[in-house]
Amino acid sequence: MTTVAPDRAALGAFLRERRGRVSPGDVGLPPGGRRRTPGLRREEVAQLAGVGVTWYTWLEQGRARNASDQVLAAVARVLRLDAAERRHLLALAGRAPETRRPAPTRVRPEHVAVLAQLLPFPAAVQTECYDLVASNRAYRYFFADLDAYPPEDRNCAWLMFTDRRWREALVDDEVVLREIVARLRGREPEHRDDPRWHALLDRLRESSSEFARFWDSYDVAGDRTSLRRYRSPRVGRVDVHFQSLWLDRERGDRLIVLTPADDVSRQRLERLDALVGAAPAWTSQDDLGAQADEAAGAEGTRVRVPAR
């Protein structure tokens, strides 16, 4: 059942871009002679999906209405969409569950306690649009002092694209930045009525030509554990497994954890925690009060709620 308004223009653009990535050989077709553009022709997609050529053309042109789930599934199969891309396709077609605008994330005392217990591993609470709403001290100092940034800038996507220190910490910068944009691109249709998302995306497009270039490539990705290689300004090269663990799947809030991928990285994270171990605990009295300090054992955890 359609629960949100479809974005037919964006749906057409997504299908055109994805059609250009699939070769005839990928779907068992002969090359078919010279092609003016890469990828499949519209009539080939229509034939393989079992729909009319005219109707599929309208779908790419943003003119088709009420595409059925069966048709969307068939087109997704032909275009070899993965799970994240299929979710994105359904959202553009109006099939995603309606996302109610949530209240600002409220970090609970048990979240703070988990962040403290994960030391010396860097960990933070992050929203679906990459706002950092809480972190332990290892994460706070892993790139630079997170507390030194104004609340509106405490967003991973923003810092990775616009801050020199965060960017220089990435060994494989293009891989990481493309993945950040692909995740934002994949979930954006589900948050088209959320002003936080609009503000972040507009700000990134205006401030970073690189972000705009990656955004226009229309890559889509979901959450997955990945190997990340960083250069911490305090302890040097650290290789970690970057994990996202759901706190609230419906809202998109998650716990991100950087666990060492080797013994050297583990030792360097332990050294980082030793270097910044004198950092005092801090919590937002407006949101958690004294309970959070008590739940976290006070030492080493700092909670912040960005201004909205």
Score class of each variant (00 low, 15 high):
122 P>C: 10
137 R>G: 00
221 A>S: 13
68 S>D: 11
188 E>S: 13
15 L>E: 01
213 R>K: 11
298 A>F: 02
113 A>V: 05
227 L>E: 11
127 T>Q: 07
30 P>R: 12
229 R>T: 07
70 Q>A: 15
211 F>S: 05
214 F>M: 14
138 A>F: 01
1 M>V: 15
92 L>T: 05
70 Q>I: 10
102 P>Y: 10
123 A>L: 07
56 Y>E: 02
277 G>K: 06
5 A>G: 09
145 D>K: 08
153 D>I: 06
111 H>S: 07
202 D>E: 13
269 L>F: 06
259 T>G: 05
85 E>M: 06
112 V>K: 03
99 T>C: 11
143 F>A: 05
159 L>T: 06
259 T>R: 10
272 L>W: 03
64 A>P: 01
87 R>S: 11
175 V>R: 15
283 T>V: 15
159 L>I: 04
308 R>Q: 13
138 A>C: 07
170 L>C: 06
300 G>W: 00
76 A>W: 04
110 E>K: 14
103 A>F: 00
298 A>W: 05
90 L>P: 03
174 E>M: 11
3 T>L: 15
8 R>L: 10
77 R>I: 02
73 A>W: 00
306 P>Q: 09
250 E>V: 14
209 S>V: 13
141 Y>K: 08
276 V>N: 04
286 D>H: 11
53 V>Y: 04
303 V>F: 01
25 G>S: 15
279 A>N: 09
214 F>V: 06
137 R>K: 06
77 R>A: 14
138 A>P: 00
290 A>N: 14
223 D>M: 13
201 L>E: 02
129 C>W: 08
162 T>Q: 04
45 V>T: 03
232 S>V: 07
155 N>T: 07
239 D>S: 10
180 I>P: 00
237 R>V: 06
56 Y>V: 03
200 L>N: 01
206 E>H: 15
257 V>N: 00
170 L>N: 04
182 A>N: 01
302 R>K: 07
154 R>H: 05
95 R>I: 00
166 W>P: 00
305 V>I: 14
19 R>H: 06
104 P>K: 13
282 W>K: 14
212 A>P: 02
166 W>S: 01
237 R>D: 12
56 Y>T: 03
259 T>K: 09
62 G>F: 03
227 L>A: 09
60 E>T: 12
92 L>H: 04
133 V>F: 04
154 R>A: 06
302 R>Q: 09
56 Y>I: 04
147 D>N: 09
88 H>T: 12
303 V>L: 12
290 A>V: 10
21 R>F: 04
79 L>G: 01
70 Q>M: 14
3 T>W: 12
234 R>K: 12
286 D>V: 13
179 E>H: 12
17 E>V: 07
196 R>H: 02
301 T>H: 01
212 A>E: 09
132 L>M: 15
59 L>R: 11
8 R>H: 08
11 L>K: 06
2 T>E: 04
153 D>G: 13
34 R>W: 04
48 L>G: 02
25 G>Y: 01
90 L>S: 13
247 L>G: 07
5 A>M: 09
274 A>K: 10
76 A>F: 02
226 S>A: 15
207 S>Y: 00
38 P>D: 08
274 A>V: 11
151 P>A: 10
98 E>W: 12
219 D>F: 08
304 R>F: 04
247 L>E: 08
